[in-house]
């Protein structure tokens, strides 16, 4: 036992396991994700509502005006949302394949996707 931190052996094992799992998921992310993302997909309750081009700048009202999507400099972000917590608005702009911004109260998902990954999508879902 390490007297300085008070952490026991099993604690360290737990920490190691968590870090390993985190790294594994990062590797999976890098493996599946990556560049070539060019489409912004807006889903409401899991159903694809709209698709936008990531290279085309603009502001779009989505889900009947509850959220406003901003596309600028090849990145997508949520400009406005009518929910109280504003978590999606505070989220960083997304640009990599399979990154997403989610507005839970309105059940809105904004997802980045590359045009070539459709096949893979069909398999994984």
């Amino acid at each position: 036992m390490d007297m300085k931190t008070g952490l026991k052996k099993k604690d360290w094992v737990l920490i190691m396991i968590i870090i390993c799992v985190a790294w594994l998921t990062v590797l999976v992310h890098i493996f599946i994700g990556g560049k070539g993302a060019n489409r912004v997909i807006v889903k409401i309750e899991g159903a694809i509502q709209d698709t936008y081009n990531l290279s085309k700048e603009g502001e779009y009202e989505i889900n009947g005006g509850t959220n406003v999507l901003l596309i600028r400099n090849g990145k997508a972000s949520m400009l406005e949302a009518d929910c109280p917590d504003q978590l999606c608005v505070h989220q960083k702009p997304i640009s990599l394949n399979r990154e997403s911004i989610i507005c839970l109260p309105n059940k809105v998902v904004v997802e980045i996707e590359s045009g070539t990954s459709r096949e893979f999508d069909a398999v994984t879902r």
Partner: peptide, 23 residues
């Protein structure tokens, strides 16, 4: 719960951040 509500698996990419943050 987030995955169930929004019916998407893309939230799974928050896993590494959330794991380390939770730690």
């Amino acid at each position: 719960v987030a995955m169930l509500v929004v019916e998407t698996f893309s939230v799974i990419y928050y896993v590494p951040v959330l794991l380390v943050a939770g730690m």
